[in-house]
Structure formats: C-alpha cells, structure tokens
Nucleic acid binder design. Sequence first.
DNA 1: GTCTATACTGTGATAGAC
DNA 2: GTCTATCACAGTATAGAC
Lengths: 211, 211
Amino acid sequence: MLDTPNVDRFDVDRRARRRESTRREILDAAWEVARESGLTGVTLRDVAERVGMRAPSLYSHFESKHAIYDAMFGEAWADYERVVRVEGAGAPDDLRGAAHAMSRTFFDFAVADHARYQLMNERVVPGFEPSAESYAPAVRVLEATYAVAAERGLADPDDLTILLAIIGGLVAQHLANDPDGDRYERLLPRAVDIWADGIGLPRTTPEKDPA
Amino acid sequence: MLDTPNVDRFDVDRRARRRESTRREILDAAWEVARESGLTGVTLRDVAERVGMRAPSLYSHFESKHAIYDAMFGEAWADYERVVRVEGAGAPDDLRGAAHAMSRTFFDFAVADHARYQLMNERVVPGFEPSAESYAPAVRVLEATYAVAAERGLADPDDLTILLAIIGGLVAQHLANDPDGDRYERLLPRAVDIWADGIGLPRTTPEKDPA
DNA sequence: GTCTATACTGTGATAGAC
DNA sequence: GTCTATCACAGTATAGAC
C-alpha cells in the first residue's frame, strides 16, 4: 500500500499551470482594484468578486493580503526592470544625457500608475514590507543604475543617490500636490541640469577627442 | 417662561476651557498612539482608553477620526512654523547659507517624528485630506520660505521648488530605507551645495562690494 | 453637553463541510 | 479548492442616562 498514485507528469503540469493562471487572475483583479480604489482601498472581498470567488478562497492561493501586495510589488519592479532594459539600451553615452533619459523613464513610469508607485516606493500599506524575493528586482535595477553611471564617469556614487532623491522628490510632490498637472514634470529637466552642473559635468555633449 | 438661564460669562468661559482641555488630552493621546503604533495604527478605542473614555465618547469632541487627524495636521504645521520662525531669525544672509540652514531645520524636524512627518507630507492615511484651516500654516510656511529666498537674491522660484524636492526626497529615502541611520543625513550638505553650485551661487559667503 | 451601552457594517482571517 | 459560518476588530450611528 501507499503506492505512488497514478498521476503522470502531464497532470502535474496541467495542475501547476491552472494554479498559476488563477494567481494571475487574482493579481490582475488586485491591480484593477488598486487603480480604481487606491492601493489601500483594495479589499479581499472586492478582489474575490472580480474573479468569481468568495474572499476566503483567495487564501488557497495567497497566504494573506500582504502576500498579494508582495507579489504585486515584485511584479511592479520586474516590469520597471524590463522598461529600463529596453530604454536603457539606447541611453546616451554621456552622464548628463543618461541622467536626463533615466529620470524621464523613472518619472513617466511612476506617474503612469499612482497605486503602483506607492507600492514600489512609499510606505503606504501599514504593516507591509516586501520579501527578499520580491525585493530582488528592485535591487538589481538600483545596482544596474549605479553601474551605468560609473561607466559614464560618475566619480562619487553618493551623487547618484542624490540624483535619485531629487527625482523621487519631484515624483512625490507631483503625486501629492499636482497629480493631474505638469507643474513638476516641467521642472524635471531643469532639476537634472542643476544636478549635472552642480557636480561639474560639461554643459553639452562632450566630443570624443580630448585634445 | 423660557427665560435666559442663570449662566454668566464665567460659566461659559469655564466650560469652553474645559472643553478645550479635553480636546487637548485627546490629541496628546492620539500623538502618543501614533508614535507608538504608527500613524495608521491609531485606533479610536486606543485613544479613548488613554483619556479614560469609551471610543464613541470621542465623537462629542471630534466629528470623526479624520477630524482628529486634521487637528493633528494643523498642529504639526503650526509647530513647524514656530520652529522656522525661531531658527529662521538667525538665518544667514546669503542664499547658499540660508539653504543649508533651512534644509537642516526641515530634515531634523522631519526625522524627529516619523508619524508626524507622514501626516504632514505623505499621503499615508487612506481617505484623509486636510481642511483649508489646518492647511493654512503649511501655506504660510511655504510662502515665507519663498519670500526669504527671494530676499536673498533667488532669481527663479522654480529653483526653490527643486530644492524642496531634493530635501523631501532625502527625507523620504531616510524614512523608507535607513530610519535609524545617518546615510542620507550625511548627504544633505552635499545635496544643498550641488543645488547651489548648479544654479550658479558663489562658493563662499560673497563680499558686499561688487567691484 | 458629555458620556455610556448597544449595535450596525465592513475588514482580514480561520475552521470545517463538501 | 471552494464554499459557508464565524471571529475579532475597526469606525461610527443612535438612544438614552446624567
């Protein structure tokens, strides 16, 4: 007795795939609710209803509400990582130009989905802290950003930290004070240039020959 | 009948004072809970218990939980306004020096009480928006800041907006990533100098004679 | 006006039947 | 896996004691 049941590999695959797709549906519904009702406006009952379930059934797929937030967090940063990889490919060789491109990319991504940005970068959900696994893409993006800057001749990594604070500060002001306007978006190029001037980068695209 | 009851002005005063002091006790308790359990960790039952009441009794003094947050919001900005007035009195005459002093003041005030900063400057409480009355001191502080900068020769007010974003960005990073450390505090002077250099302010305290 | 008791609705979460 | 039932806890509305 206690023999291996008659379940071949195909059944296991199918079951795993089905389970994955249910998780996907739940996450899609959660994103939908977050965009409509705000990040903290997400309720399990609302999410469950959109996938044709009762709230407790969600616990078959996620350990808790925070686990759903956690999966969303990882997804958001993975999405941003993809965007950075695509747009970063065509980034200018000079540090100032790269800073402009990077800040634009970040600002646009941030502003496109307020709830997503709050989840990624602000501490809006009371008890939530991302797991190491979900945090990984965020770390990768940051490390890649520092590497890109170093390649383009950034002397002090602290200066990049400051640039990131500048951009984050403008995004925060935008979301808090002028979410539908362009008051802070307009300041973005100026802010980046102030930073570039402030750390002594050359004004225009530098020529290749040093002599 | 229906004569004016025998209540003189003293009784009215005393009652008003008693009412005010009860409000004070409630607000103090609310601040206490906010510092201990986080801003969103404040519950009416917890606040009520600390002032020796039941939760519904708070409604005799505040219309709602948001009304308590609103009073706290106004109080926090009024406190900061007071700090700015005191420390601003001894502010340097040059714009760079004033920027350094101002950013220090703001950063220290922000970091001293995380819950207070979240209430003042981040959108952490789901449905809460400050009333016009509570918002007033915040507006006054901002206007005064722009005035101080203009007096010291700031050419473009947008540049001050950018400075404020820089400081706010550093505070946000501090609170999110290194609340007990000094990783971002250390960057503050450098960030302000980058800004000052970037908008073309002289390096040292300028001398009065232009020739 | 101030406070309490009670209760209503909605939340995340758990237990157990099917 | 999904359900129903239920729990503990939240904010808050209401009625009534004082």
